[in-house]
Amino acid sequence: MKDNGKQPIIKLQDVWKIYRMGDVEVPALRGMTLEIYPEEFVAIMGPSGSGKSTAMNMVGCLDVPTKGHIFLDNKDISKMKESDLAQIRGRKIGFIFQSFNLMQNLTALENVMLPMTFQGIPRAKREERAKRLLKLVGLEDRMNHKPTELSGGQQQRVAIARSLSNNPEVVLADEPTGNLDSKTGVEVMEMLKTLHEKEGKTIIMVTHDKNVGDFADRIAYLKDGRCCDKEDI
């Protein structure tokens, strides 16, 4: 574990998440503990059913734990209301999804502008920043295209640009290459790597793909809802 003498940006402390399916309780996380430091590139890996997605949701403030604490910038978010969580997500976390999840009716530019809209940033500023980000991911000539007019790789690059639009401290990527062929996947991963190295973004990535995981500085292994060593997988 790399400790630069800094406070962790995200800290999961004995986090439990129990889903209720009818009468049955299904624990997805069973006391997961994880610390992620600023400017780290961490991959969370584990077999399916290990609780990766749930962990991702917790880290991304998309859901609150049943038990335990999650600290984001030393603030306990585990008991926060949805509207406060939304604010935190919007400002501090950028999401990249496996299936891109772009708004189908908006152009690439509008998609990148959208997170800034929810933060109440004036239109001119949004547009300027969105253009810069699309240029950064090499899509300056595709700005006015709708997602359906873009290839998978291009869509994921739009999503990367979108994730950066509010200049978040953390970028969360959920199987970012899952819907891409291996060549495009590598391109996307290299882009994330560059983001990490050049922009100093903290990147947290969930994947089950060893090759993808190797792009990260550190891999946190997850099994049966808690962190474990590589050898236990």
Partner: peptide, 16 residues
């Protein structure tokens, strides 16, 4: 629904 989820993930509040 999915779009609503995405919008929420990228910072849309319930009121938005």
């Amino acid at each position: 629904t999915n779009e609503i989820g995405v919008m929420k993930a990228i910072g849309a509040k319930n009121s938005d």
